[in-house]
Design a protein around this nucleic acid. Structure first.
Length: 723
RNA sequence: GCCGGUGUAGCUCAGUGGUAGAGCAUCGCUUUUGUAAAGCGAUGGUCGCAGGUUCGACUCCUGUCACCGGCUCCA
């Protein structure tokens, strides 16, 4: 029998006289490890502890916590996938006739997609019963037992069970096995019994699993959702049951504590508490009303960004919220993106005429989407192909004119560029606008400020020569660096979207693409943060750079983007005069590095948990008189602060100072200035700094005013004013 | 859009077919206060909206609107 040499993570080699199981390896290392082991990793592949290793391999034993005390992601995967089986069995007992589909482990939970009988859907009211059943299965500590049967037999068996989903799973597994180098392992179908095959509950499953159900210390059903088979909305609708599991109850408690922590930072909750914004049914879903406090935050952000743009040579422009349909037919936004746009606004006269002539809805849409022969010819000539197909061309008297709520700012900015002649000496031209756009997001996708239907982008369009692209990209990224640095959101990464090597959909020459892609890479490097290259992620009109920030509790948020565009300048026939006195097509760069003010503010609220730095705070100082007797002095203090541009409030109500402090703390006001007769006499204020338990002490009013004003002017991230 | 949940006072939430409630906020009175809520009183609701069942509906049914969680990290 050939010797099997097992290399452990520390480099030590154990020799066995023949095939050995993962458990066997663990036992050789130590009894304690064998007891704690949940699974095994063989040459990097996660397997059952009972898996037989019959060749030399690098092996590590998977336990819940490694020596460093960190919970192993592999262990959680084993635990959660096993938990999915336990949940499925429990559900099967509670709701007979439910067909299992697919149940993987996720990052912090697991789910099982299940087809429930029409007459017996699963409800949240069933959770308690399911959890009771799961508890029973865990306490029975049944072994997860793997066995394999040949595909033909397996398929027959699955078909007998009448579960087309599992049959499909098996067929897919066989297909995958056919193309896999690991063919031997997949040439059979594997089943797992939660206990004894033939007697206990079984499921077609690739595995791996923990050794037995008792190894799952905590398991819970979380929620219900709907999903589609294979994620295809035209396919069967399934019910997705989410749950989570941990090896210990303490870990699960910690998980829910963290969830609660995140919930407290929820910008929708804080937005209400701190009166930052309001969404009103009668205005419309996904439409943000910025209330005065939120208005301050937005205004400060805009001012900050605007100042930086001036430094970078941008020009501020302003454009209306709507534009003629023809504009968007020229740009290609309509009707191409019509599903994600608000419906066009049709001119009244055209509408009346249509209704008089008895025009049907579909006919009307056709006439709204139609393009005049003149425009079609122009665009086809400019793009040198049949961009506008003949079926969209209509006689002028058939065309229905109208306007669109703008889904993008670029067409308006392009028209500003085109409104005068430029020479190469004038380039680059940088047009910036906090431009409000409207998009028809699906109602289920809407979410507070982070996913809305009307939003204001920190938008700009740069028109430059091909040679200037690289420098302009670097400029865009340096702005991001400055802004995120000032906000102390320095944990972010960028994604560089490149063209697919063999894609044909792209416009622009290959050499221009190479140049632009290299420029994107070079620009990303100048940031000094992690960046990834993602082939195939470019837009069809040019490469792009996306920004993703990580907030203080580790969640990632996709913000804005910088995109190089060869397409629109062509469609709009833009040109500048080159040194050769000939017309040249400029390259356009679209950039909205913070995405939208709505999303960015939402992310900021969560990042700071509502406790903004002083310069962003709606109320920067609140003056708290000890009693009515000190009200006059309190207002004098406030007056001096206000004169230096500080946003200050006075709580001169008939409450005790303890109460005033509590309320100001809840509103997360950065500084409180408590004033009583003593302060009035000495010209001081007693300072309280947000986040600190105690009174920081008294300081001269003048010094306090200057300290706060200076901190605000410097956009300092922390609260540094102290006596 | 789809599945499940939720919708009651400005906010947070009780209320399982028989006269709509609490705390906070607001307003008034008392207190004149030195560092995370002093006391008393008052105001405030078409119970999301529209139908239906019933002697009677916040409660049960149907529809509708909105919000929340989710809608593959591929056996």
């Amino acid at each position: 029998m050939p010797t099997v040499n097992i290399t452990l993570p520390d480099g030590k080699v154990l020799s066995f006289d023949g095939p050995v199981t993962g458990l066997g390896v663990a036992e050789r290392i130590g009894a304690r490890l064998a007891k704690d082991a949940l699974g095994v990793k063989v040459d990097g592949e996660l397997r059952d502890l009972s898996a037989v290793i019959d060749r030399d391999a690098a092996v590590s034993i998977v336990t819940y916590k490694g020596r460093d005390g960190v919970v192993s992601a592999d262990a959680l995967k084993l635990v959660r996938h096993s938990a999915a089986h336990i949940m499925a069995e429990a559900i099967g007992r509670v709701v007979p006739g439910a067909l299992l589909v697919y149940g993987p482990a996720l990052e912090d939970k697991f789910y099982y997609d299940i087809k429930f009988p029409e007459e017996r859907p699963l409800r949240e009211g069933d959770f308690a019963k399911i959890e009771e059943e799961m508890g029973r299965i865990v306490s029975e500590d049944r072994k997860f037992t793997r066995y394999e049967i040949n595909p033909e037999e397996g398929l027959v068996r699955l078909k007998q069970e009448g579960n087309k989903y599992k049959v499909d799973n098996a067929e897919r597994a066989m297909m995958a096995a056919g193309g896999s180098s690991l063919g031997t392992r997949h040439s059979a179908l594997s089943f797992y019994a939660t206990g004894t095959p033939g007697k206990d509950w079984e499921d077609l499953c690739r595995g791996p699993h923990v050794p037995s159900t008792g190894r799952i210390g905590a398991i819970k059903v979380l929620s219900l959702a709907s999903s589609f088979w294979h994620g295809d909305e035209n396919s069967d609708r399934l019910t997705r049951v989410y749950g989570t599991a941990f090896a210990t109850q303490a870990e699960m408690d910690a998980y829910f504590a963290l969830k609660e922590e995140a919930a407290k930072r929820d910008h929708r909750v804080l937005g209400k508490q701190l009166h930052l914004f309001h969404i009103d049914e009668s205005v419309g879903q996904g439409l943000i009303l910025w209330t005065p406090n939120g208005g301050v935050v937005r205004d400060q952000l805009q001012k900050f960004i605007s100042e930086e743009l001036v430094k970078q040579g941008y020009h501020q422009v302003f454009t209306p919220h709507i534009g003629r349909l023809e504009l968007y037919k020229t740009s290609g936004h309509f009707p191409y993106y019509k599903e994600s746009q608000f419906a066009p606004v049709i001119e009244r006269e055209a509408l009346e005429e249509l209704s008089k002539s008895g025009c049907s809805c579909s006919e009307m849409m056709h006439r709204v989407e139609g393009v005049s022969a003149r425009l079609a010819a122009t665009i086809n000539e400019r793009t040198q192909k049949q961009t506008i197909t003949p079926d969209r061309v209509l006689a002028d008297d058939k065309l229905v004119e109208g306007f669109m709520l703008k889904p993008m700012n670029c067409p308006h900015h392009i028209k500003i560029f085109a409104s005068r002649a430029y020479s190469y000496r004038d380039l680059p031209v940088r047009l910036a606008e906090f431009g409000t756009v409207y998009r028809w997001e699906q109602s289920g996708e809407l979410n507070g400020m982070t996913r809305v239907r009307g939003f204001t982008q920190d938008d700009a369009h740069l028109f430059c020569t091909e040679d200037q692209v690289a420098a302009e990209l670097i400029g865009c990224l340096s702005l991001v660096k400055t802004v995120l640095g000032t906000l102390k959101m320095e944990n972010y990464r960028v994604r560089v979207g490149l063209r697919d090597p063999d894609g044909k959909k792209y416009t622009g020459s290959a050499s221009a693409w190479d140049k632009a892609e290299n420029a994107c890479r070079d620009a990303a490097r100048t940031l000094g943060v992690a960046f990834s290259e993602e082939p195939g992620e470019a837009a069809f009109y040019g490469p792009k750079i996306d920004f993703v920030v990580k907030d203080v509790i580790g969640r990632e948020w996709q913000l804005g983007t910088v995109q190089v565009d060869y397409q629109l300048p062509v469609r709009f026939g833009l040109s500048y005069t080159g040194a050769d006195n000939k017309p040249h097509v400029p390259v356009m760069i679209h950039r909205a590095p913070f995405g939208s003010l709505e999303r960015f503010t939402g992310v900021l609220i969560e990042h700071f948990a509502g406790a903004f730095p002083a310069w962003l705070s709606p109320e920067q100082v609140r003056v708290l008189p000890i009693s009515e007797k000190s009200n006059a002095y309190a207002h004098r203090v406030a007056g001096e602060l206000r004169a230096r541009g500080v946003r200050v409030g006075v709580d001169d109500g008939n409450e005790r100072v303890q109460g005033k402090i509590k309320v100001a703390a809840e509103m997360k006001v950065p500084y409180m200035a408590v004033v009583g007769p003593r302060d009035a006499e000495h010209g001081t204020v007693s300072v309280r700094v947000r986040g600190q338990e105690k009174d920081a002490g008294a300081m001269a009013l003048g010094a306090f005013v200057e300290g706060v004003a200076g901190e605000i002017a410097g956009r300092v991230a922390g609260l540094g004013v102290r006596p």
